[in-house]
Write a protein that binds this DNA or RNA. Sequence first.
DNA 1: CGGTTCGGAATGGCATGTCACTTCCTGAAG
DNA 2: CTTCAGGAAGTGACATGCCATTCCGAACCG
Lengths: 214, 214
Amino acid sequence: MTGPPTTTQARTRAERLRQELREEIVTAAFEEFSQRGYHDTGIADIAQRLGIGHGTFYRHFKNKRDILDHVVDGLLARILEALAAENAPDAVDTLDEYVEQCRRISGALSEIFSADPRVARMLLLEATSIDAELTERVLGLFDTATALTAAYFMHGRELGYLRADLDVDGTARAVVGVILANLLQGLRTPADREAQRRTADAGLRLMFDGIARR
Amino acid sequence: MTGPPTTTQARTRAERLRQELREEIVTAAFEEFSQRGYHDTGIADIAQRLGIGHGTFYRHFKNKRDILDHVVDGLLARILEALAAENAPDAVDTLDEYVEQCRRISGALSEIFSADPRVARMLLLEATSIDAELTERVLGLFDTATALTAAYFMHGRELGYLRADLDVDGTARAVVGVILANLLQGLRTPADREAQRRTADAGLRLMFDGIARR
DNA sequence: CGGTTCGGAATGGCATGTCACTTCCTGAAG
DNA sequence: CTTCAGGAAGTGACATGCCATTCCGAACCG
């Protein structure tokens, strides 16, 4: 009935140490995977980074694929948490409020992605090519983002501050594409935060006003 | 000085046959790589698909990585060709003409990507995780697309049919993101061409007019 | 018949996962 | 407070299987 606590506090000192090592392994694996790539990383590399024997690794994780899941779990959780925290389509009643809300979401995302380009590297470049199940989880994240966006659009269209003829679903997908463009910018110019901010701003402006002269 | 002809016509019958087989191998490799993934595909799989011994493979290509380059070369060439064929920023003098032009480009791209979802699979999901050089080539394609788009924007801003305060570069990146959204849609619903057309339309509309009520 | 191409058995190297052994920790008993 | 026993965690040599690549006898062409 108990089972080993995962995020919860561990009772005994030994348990706490064990838990700590587990997390260190996940972190080390993330670093190796996101930099060398999954296939070019050996269990030995992960172990060596921590100065442990690679046999020890297998005391904590079933196999290489298993830890990859844990790494991705952590990243997806962080992202979903950020999205969920800001999510409140019904609390937005005017265009200006929605712009503000989008800025908040944009900020929360760049908090995650700009702060560490390896996150985008891992999710966009690596995790999409391991197997169908993992690819599905990453693409599923995009679907989730699309759905969240679509909820805002639906609300805004009803309240009349968005175009009446807005194709909610198709446009939501396009907007997720704009977010993607920001992640790519983060991959291209990891150091240049300023460029990232400008791309984000341009994306937001495009989203609301388009490119045509009014 | 001669070197083996690649696209050119072959003199002798043997050379022609050899050239044909080369192309068949590239095609077979594309099919395997895009479906199973690069790492899960063995040279033997490619050879078997063609009913040749896998030793024969090495008569035509240096190694596994080598043929991957040829596969990607072919795909990139097709895409760049399509983009170059439609490219003519200076011939576009009004907003309507630019809309029309974008529709053409969008059409040319879906000609390639919607017709065969494996192209997007290969480039977006597989090719980004092999090594730095290949990743660079794929991301470089996005940069090229961004540059082409930016040229149109510059022109349109000068002629006054696009917003005067348009951030040319940042917005171009965002628009490439919208294109990316279309590719993802193609991956998600490969069979549903109608959904893809709707996403493309919504993307174009977003690009020109944004979501806000006018 | 030279020479060229084919094919698939053999090779080599490498990374994963196992296991028998060692080390360390902890809690209890003296 | 010290000692000790039991068990948990750590370790890295080793077994295993896999696959890219090589190589040489066979088939085939001209």
